[in-house]
Nucleic acid binder design. Structure first.
Lengths: 139, 139
DNA sequence: CTATAATTGCAACTGATTTGCAATTAATTA
DNA sequence: TAATTAATTGCAAATCAGTTGCAATTATAG
């Protein structure tokens, strides 16, 4: 039992949610992968969980802050929330579909400044850059 | 006939696309509104255009640079391209659903810097801030 | 004005997500 | 630990978004 799994259980329990095998499996899949689309995630469950349940579990995870949606272009993928990994954004390669995490505090404060200038109370934000990674620029 | 309509027709003609009433109507709806989801757009056509055609027209508009998708959270909406309005991003109010355009050159160059540091060739980017606008913070 | 090419509308389809409900599993209590 | 209760899951079926094929219509070019 590692640290992340303990945090997961604490979050579930403090929200009166059951610790089920299905929830643990999905958490572990998310832990071991880049952001996944719903279909990618469903595939990785290897039919051990019904698709409907995967949707419901992700909905639950998002509502209690275990997972979060990140928009990639105009689709979205699922990744663990900032509780389990540092807040970040992504570069997305249009060729190989790879995501590169970017951690950049300057960018964050820049966005805060803009929100303040507009008297806007920020709840969340999305930043993504789409293009070609260094590997894929050759071809 | 205003200036924008003339630009629209020029773009269509230079791409050997017909100038049809349906295309003009959709262009005018987009001109007069904030970014619209496909369903919002379809509703505003007031059944004068079949849903399938709306999808096809937007696809065409995007391919020739008349319109563009903007991701809002993990959905997307359609707005006129940078040809018809300056490049910008949005603050989105979670309460009233209003979008506030932000024009900020510093932000753009910041993103370019990040891409360069990662040897990444940018094709497009998305930035959105979700929260509560000044009007909606009271309630 | 006619011929040709592009576009639209309709019907039907596919894939993603949601809903209702019964069966199962986890948590609570004695 | 067993029995009870509450939460969760799986299944079937519905809904919603987006797509495809094709015939009917409309725009463009001559």
């Amino acid at each position: 039992m590692n640290r992340s799994n303990q945090i997961l259980k604490d979050i579930l329990k403090s929200n009166r949610l059951s610790v089920t095998n299905q929830r643990l499996l999905i958490f572990n899949i998310l832990s071991q992968n880049q952001p996944l689309s719903m279909n990618e995630l469903i595939k990785k469950t290897n039919s051990e969980i019904d698709r409907v349940s995967v949707y419901r579990i992700i909905e639950t995870f998002i509502s209690v802050g275990i997972a979060q949606k990140v928009s990639l272009g105009w689709k979205y993928k699922i990744e663990l929330s900032d509780t389990f990994q540092d807040h970040h954004h992504h570069l997305i390669c249009l060729a190989c579909n790879k995501t590169i995490a970017i951690h950049n505090q300057g960018l964050e404060s820049y966005l805060n400044k803009i929100a303040n200038e507009n008297n806007f109370e920020t709840k969340n934000h999305q930043i993504e850059i789409q293009g070609y990674c260094s590997d894929c620029q050759k071809s």
